[in-house]
Amino acid sequence: MTAAVTTVSQTAAGSPGPTRRRKPRSLLRGLLGNRKAMFGLVLLVLFVLLALLAPVISPADPSQISDAISLPPSAAHWFGTTSSGQDVLALTLWGSRSSLLVGFGVGIAATLIGIVIGMLSAYFGKIVDDLLSLFTNIFLLIPGLPLLVVLAAYLPPGQGTVAIVLIVTGWAGSARVLRAQALSIRGKDFVAAAVVTGEGALRVMFREILPNMASVVMTTFLGCVIFGIGAQAGLEFLGLGDTSTVSWGTNLYWASNNGSLMTGNWWVFLPSGLCIALVAFGLAMVNYAVDEITNPRLRTRRKG
């Protein structure tokens, strides 16, 4: 057995720690070593690449109508065609651009707003906290879907609208989570020590508290992206998005509208739906991995 036996003397009371060792960015290093994370990351990178390269690798212009109507997958059209003769592969590839852009955009924006509001709430406390919490709670209480529908109906159609609508309905959840985390860190001695040292409010919030929230911010962000992609698809499926753009959601909308669901032309709606599911899956995998890394109790036992 070649396991290294550490005697307690190396870790006993008062002994100096290991000399000068730079701490690696442990979260990143941990992610790279974690199987779930790698799987999820590879999946996500794949989709991002496909989205970026869509103009190059797409076999056709997705909006081009042809008379090759409702053809099942074949050598000419790998994913078949829609009832308007559009190439499904092209639609799927081009659709990824919008879906991922809006999804990540919503994720970033909702997380940023959540950080700012959560942090201000936690740091200033009392009245500021009461007001911001009230504000957050109102947005949490408002039923999401009806609000989505109402806003989408009144605002001019377009990708931007969809994004705004999703951000407006999505920020409150992350704000609440981030506020809770910021509060728990706010109460720690090192924050008080920074205040006593003379650090200003902004510095304390963003250089003392925020770095300790990294993993929660990460998981919140991933959750918001999943929300962004899924909700966008949902909105568009209902026809409330911008039906003229190509995205996975609108692909599903047209598929449903044109009766592909009825006629069993599975190749029309399956790719887009599957893509949404796969991206969400990849994000969830990375999310689990981040949880695992930051909470040692969740780590699965490694063999050997």
Partner: peptide, 26 residues
Amino acid sequence: MVFQDPFGSLNPAHRVDYLLTRALRV
């Protein structure tokens, strides 16, 4: 002020030189 809990009064995200440098800079 020096706090009671040595495990809680130093920000785990920062190295020692950062903590001391901030005090000097501020």
